[in-house]
Amino acid sequence: MIMDTIIEVKGLKKYFKTPSGICHAVDGVDLSIERGKTVGIVGESGCGKSTLGRTMIHLTESTEGSIVFNGEDITRVGKAKLKELREKMQIIFQDPFSSLNPRMTAYETIEEPLRISKRFGKKEIAERTVALMRLVGIDKRIENSYPHELDGGRRQRIVIARALALKPELVICDEPVSALDVSIQAQILNLLQDLQENMKLTYVFITHDMSVVRYLSQYICVMYLGQVVEHCPTERLFENPLHPYTKALLSAIPVPDIHMPRKRVVLKGEVTSPINPKPGCRFFARCPHAAEACRRNQGLVEAEKDHFVMCSRLKEIG
């Protein structure tokens, strides 16, 4: 079967200069995503998953590496081409309270991308805006409401409508439900799934909620301090996690059954600082299996088919 790759990221790095040194927010990530699929990116806060998402669609400029989207390297294209490609890559933000302009009504926010693209006439913009509002389930009644008058779920629907206005192919979902009430989370997740089916969207789903990615994504990348430490199809990760960090992460998922015996892997210590990291395994300081071999730089190894892990002591750990 030929893989229809929508975006391929190679050796992507994003460093930030900080007063105390260089912060390796994203440090050498390789990723290739198949069209129409959902890839989950998980990791604890501060591991660089949001930065990865934003860098992938060139909202923040990458320091190094290539991002090939639909056959074109977006780190090299000119401004005009980038604008064209950007329409095909959109982002849904985590916090629907800060991702909507407080001075624009729901209608104005949704129509803005259509207006800016200059491809449609006045009448068509109006038609499309109404269609988009229906698509994401916003009542016509609230079209003239300002964001502060709406609840989180409705705001997030507006954000989604804005992102979908120009028919993107790739949508980065940066923790789209973590700021919402649990009851609304399910609604939004279902909406995202329906939209994916109907519009053939590809999602990059960034989250720290393991049960959400398990439900939505076919493929998972586990990130730790700017690096992807393990990636494989979703079910395999849950059945057979290989990296010690993934094991700890999975064991932290709450189980709704108090009688179920479970082994909790508790990590000691703090997340190592991403500023000027030492060479070798990033997880070294907290890993229960750390050994001398871990001080060397690590690479992703295919442990089994389609299952890549960045750990040099796989055999010893078993």
Binding site: R54, I57, L59, K83, R86, E87, M89, Q90, I91, F93, Q94, D95, S98, S99, L100, N101, P102, R103, E112, P113, I116, S117, V159, R162, A163, A165, L166
Partner: peptide, 26 residues
């Protein structure tokens, strides 16, 4: 630094538009 400025960039809003409509108005 609000997210809606980034959102405006991602929908290709021009810089004058971002500065006037999104930044300045707020």
């Amino acid at each position: 630094n609000q997210d809606y400025i980034e959102a405006a960039v991602s929908i290709n809003a021009s810089e004058p538009r971002i500065i006037f409509k999104h930044v300045l108005m707020n």
